[in-house]
């Protein structure tokens, strides 16, 4: 299906592609102005001796720390540990959230049956589960992954359920008029209709996944970027803390970008307010 999209839309798109390509880089730069500007100013302030930079290390020191961590291979061990926890928790949370959300959105009976319970569980601050999870699953990977999965589950569940419930009845009727029902109706009408909302909930789920991996690692881990944070605090190494934070920012942003750009080809049909500048 997407192949057909590509080939069919390629022709009219090319005419407008040229100005769009020329404009885009200038916009992307805009997002870097603020962080780079602040980093440069801070570096200059420390160099000029206006601040000793001990508690808030300047960028050069942070880069040195990152470089050292990378050279010794520690950075990769910690990153790998954290990323694989998030990946496992995210996968479990997304699968469960999608299934429950789809069932609750599709069938009124199941929604009445399980939504109140799930909403009540959602009201519990997820960190509150930690002691229980540690008792149940031990202090190693399993309890951490469970915590992350719980964090990912709720936004995905809510997103999928809400999206399915709010699919336009008129569009569903088109499917029915062409004698679609059951799986065919889901695949050809409901799924594409909920896709934009689904991507948004995946992204917010992933955001919560990163939040909970830090919580899990702060509460006890021997490796992971969260461990670097705690280690830096206990040994009084603020540069290591900031280096770990920077690593979180970079990886978090990258994974979010991955979801966004992987889904973009499937969402080109959207008639969005925010797309108004991209056309013309």
């Amino acid at each position: 299906m997407s192949l057909v999209h590509m080939t069919l839309t390629a022709a009219p798109a090319t005419a407008e592609a040229a100005p769009a390509i020329r404009r885009r880089p200038s916009r992307a730069w805009l997002g870097l102005v603020l962080p780079v500007g602040i980093a440069v100013i801070w570096e200059l302030l420390v160099r000029a001796g206006w601040s000793n930079g001990r508690l808030v290390p300047p960028p050069s020191v942070i880069f040195d720390t990152l470089w050292d961590l990378a050279k010794s291979g520690e950075l990769w061990t910690h990153t790998l540990a954290t990323v694989s926890r998030v990946a496992a928790g995210f996968a479990v949370g997304v699968v469960a959230g999608t299934l429950f959300g789809a069932v609750a959105g599709y069938s009124n009976l199941s929604r009445r049956l399980m939504d109140p319970t799930l909403q009540a569980l959602r009201a519990i601050p997820s960190i509150a589960w930690v002691p229980l999870f540690i008792l149940w699953f031990g202090i190693f990977e399993q309890s951490k992954i469970t915590l992350i999965a719980v964090g990912v589950f709720f936004p995905v569940y809510l997103g999928v359920m809400g999206a399915i419930m709010s699919v336009d009845r008129k569009i569903v009727e088109v499917g029915r008029a062409f004698r679609l029902s059951g799986p065919a109706l889901v695949r050809r009408i409901l799924l594409p209709a909920v896709l934009p909302t689904y991507i948004v909930s995946l992204r917010s789920g992933l955001g919560l996944g990163w939040m909970f991996v830090v919580a899990a690692e702060l509460l006890g881990a021997s490796e992971g970027l969260g461990f670097l944070l705690i280690d830096g605090q206990q040994l009084g190494k603020p540069a290591q803390i900031v280096a770990a934070i920077v690593a979180f920012a970079v990886i978090g942003k990258t994974t979010d970008w991955l979801i966004a750009s992987a889904s973009a080809p499937f969402l080109r049909w959207e008639d969005r307010f925010s797309a108004r500048g991209e056309e013309r």
Partner: peptide
Amino acid sequence: AEPHEKIGIIFQEPRLLPWLTVAENVGFG
């Protein structure tokens, strides 16, 4: 008693599927 392949319907609004191109919409049925 339910939608039949020999009966087609056109509504007051076009009700095109926004995620399909015009050609794909036409070929939907």
